[in-house]
Design a binder for these strands. Structure first.
Lengths: 209, 209, 209, 209
DNA sequence: TATGAATGAGAGTTCATTCAT
DNA sequence: GATGAATGAACTCTCATTCAT
């Protein structure tokens, strides 16, 4: 195989992934057909089967890279010199935007039959990523609350914060508005949510100590 | 029509509803076929069409009664002589328990393509019910915050509270634990969540006024 | 069986026939369901099977009486003291109106796989009736042309006249207008058609003799 | 795509069209199922959907080409140097032969729920074709009657002529004889019909002027 | 590598008909 | 005699997937 061929082959695979990503996001996994993907990718639907075992495999291969990207971004925020509260807000908005951007995938990302959001020992790679994210969230929340929390408290608080975050995502994921529309319209509401959470958590932490 | 026939007819309908409920819960509406339901209900798939116009009608008939029941229960709480905070907590726990009990339907209940959770003018009866619930929530939150809120503030605060509630539900709905197990294990966490939310909302309301 | 029961039984059968007749006429045999018929007849769909072997049997039992009625009417006209031309016109209009009234049945009436419209030796009773009609038509046409025609000529002329008649019926049978609307609107056209045909036939008969 | 593939594809499509044509002709559109067609065509029923959007599309693709062919032939006749009467006869015979050749489709061609045979503003392409034919008929009839007719007269006369033509077609379409047999046996009758019509129309036109 | 052709399984739904009462 | 309950066969159409080139 010449390097030209390799190149072309890789391009085809990329275009399939791009097409699938867009379609899954906009219409949901079930509503998208292999032919839809092929049409948008500019190839035959049979070509998809050269690169991917089946439709599900396509979904799986599709879900990892964006998550990795998100984690990278989150790590960048972690080392920025910002107030903890601002870090948490920035990170939260980023997670929301990410999940709404990858709407159909957010389900895969957040929800793959994991009994508890804090569960270690994940079965799928995707759970690994989710847990990484949960850890980062824990870290920042600890920072925000000035590291006064015991482990079990911290876990609970992170869970509580996570509920709200997940609630936001789950509320707007089925919407048919674009991510931009949603974020433009709702960012103030989201930020208010974070404020409320942080205030509440602080109050409780103060009372507990 | 003899009473025996009536009885048999009612039993068939019930068994169809039971089968549909179970299957929708476990696999989701789309993934379940009419033939699946019939098989589990122990009848021919055509029999379903005697009792239900189509698949969607089955879903609707399935989802309305429990929701009506919930609303009744909530209304009972509303008129009890309790502290506003306790009413809100009781009501919240009840909604969570209800949604986890009717797992597959909670999606229908909360999520039927409604652009906004606060939207008026609903197209389906199910939306009506959801909006009723949202209104009750609004009322109690206003009470909790001593009626100091302007409308737009109140709306935002209710939404924020709703996010957390929905987040809890969405987090544990996919779990395979029984409702009882989940409630026993997590009620303290849920109550902590409500506390945190209320504290946070109060703080913000104080600052705003 | 008491006479009261017999009476009631006959009424049920009649109401089924009436309902079927109306529905077949308006919507066509295939588009009508047994339940449609039962609903209009005011009985259960299973009751139909007491009186009729199946749907087709219903159609057959349905098609004979109106045809008999038509033939009776035609015979009345035959013995009236009218000019032959007027008889022919009256009879023609009557046939058209009849066929449009019994739209779905006219097909059965005129068209049951009969190779030739003049064929003797019919397989079905319905063909018998049609042939009777054809004979009457032949008689009047002979009258109109002053009995000058030889048999083979007469046959051809009747056929030709029949084509026009049948063409009219076949043209307007699929229409969704009511019979009354059609007859009101088109009677002049129909009468002109008869005139044209008669003139033409006379001219040709004159030349031949 | 290799030429072998193209060839095979075309053959499949042809075999589907052939099968559909035969079945529609013999049993009528509604009574034929996609699986019937597939069985006769020697392919899977899903294959049909590769070449045709749905059942109706199949019917349409089936009916258009022959109609176009007929119109072409008619136009050829229009410009030949023949006596008007001979043109009309030739054209009429051609239409009859065409309709009998495409028996099942003649219904589609002539009868697609068109309120009036002279209606302008057609919804389907097939109606367009039929109207074209009606216009040509009108033109020649005007010629035959030496252009003496007013529009409304001409319209009525064309309709009358059309009735006869349609009556002939409708009479012999259900026959199981071959087209050749029918034409051989009946052409004299058909020609006599045209003569009668023309004589009659002329007589009436004379009297009216 | 890539693709058009082709398919089997299966979806929701309808309907004439039979069964049990 | 009459009916509600129930069903099997069949309908059109879709889709993920495989085959042959």
């Amino acid at each position: 195989m010449t390097s030209r061929q390799v190149l072309r082959s890789e391009e085809t695979k990329k275009s399939i992934l791009a097409a699938a990503s867009e379609l899954f996001s906009n219409r949901g996994y079930d509503a998208v057909t292999m032919r839809d993907i092929a049409r948008l990718a500019g190839c035959s639907h049979t070509t998809i089967y050269i690169y991917f075992k089946d439709k599900e495999d396509l979904l799986h291969q599709l879900s990892m890279p964006p998550v990795q990207y998100l984690i990278g971004k989150i790590e960048e925020i972690m080392i920025q010199s910002l107030l903890p509260d601002d870090k948490l807000k920035k990170m939260s908005l980023m997670i929301i935007e990410f999940c709404l951007t990858n709407r159909s995938l957010y389900g895969v990302f957040i929800n793959t039959k994991s009994e508890r959001v804090d569960e270690k020992n994940p079965k799928l790679e995707i759970n690994l990523a989710r847990n990484q994210l949960f850890e980062k969230l824990t870290l920042i929340i600890q920072e925000c609350l000035e590291n006064r929390l015991r482990d079990e408290q911290l876990l609970m608080y992170t869970r509580i914060y996570f509920f709200t975050l997940y609630g936001i995502i789950a509320t707007y994921a089925p919407s048919e508005e674009t991510v931009k529309q949603l974020m433009d319209r709702l960012t103030p509401t989201f930020e208010a949510s974070f404020d409320v959470m942080l205030s509440g958590l602080r109050k409780r932490a103060d009372e507990a100590s």
